[in-house]
Simulated scan of single mutants.
Amino acid sequence: MTGRFVATLGTALTTFLVVTAVLTEVLSARIAFSALVGLPIGVVAGAVAGVATWVRLWDRPGLRPVLLGVSAVGYAVLAAAAVSYSVPPARPFVSASGAVGFGVVCGVVIFLLARRDPERLSG
Score class of each variant (00 low, 15 high):
Gly98Tyr: 12
Ala12Val: 08
Ala29Cys: 03
Ala72Pro: 10
Val66Asp: 04
Met1Thr: 14
Ser84Asp: 12
Val94Ile: 07
Thr11Met: 12
Val70Asp: 10
Ala52Ile: 04
Arg120Met: 09
Val37His: 02
Leu13Glu: 11
Ser28Trp: 08
Gly42Tyr: 13
Ile31Ala: 08
Ser34Gln: 02
Arg116Asn: 11
Tyr75Thr: 01
Arg60Trp: 02
Val44Lys: 00
Gly10Thr: 11
Leu67Arg: 00
Trp58Ser: 01
Val51Thr: 04
Pro65Thr: 09
Gly38Ser: 07
Val6Cys: 13
Thr20Gln: 12
Leu39Lys: 05
Phe102Trp: 04
Thr53Lys: 04
Trp58Lys: 05
Ser34Val: 00
Val108Trp: 01
Thr8Ser: 01
Leu36Met: 06
Leu57Trp: 02
Gly10Cys: 13
Val55Asp: 06
Pro88Ala: 13
Arg120Tyr: 08
Pro65Tyr: 12
Arg115Met: 08
Met1Ala: 15
Ser86Ala: 06
Ala32Ile: 01
Gly42Glu: 07
Ala21Asp: 12
Arg30Ser: 08
Val19Gly: 05
Val26Asn: 01
Val94Phe: 14
Asp117Asn: 09
Tyr85Cys: 03
Val19Arg: 04
Phe93Val: 05
Leu36Asp: 09
Ala49Pro: 03
Arg56Trp: 00
Leu57Ile: 05
Pro40Tyr: 02
Pro61Asp: 09
Phe111Met: 05
Phe93Ser: 09
Ala52Val: 01
Val55Asn: 02
Pro40Asp: 00
Glu25Ile: 05
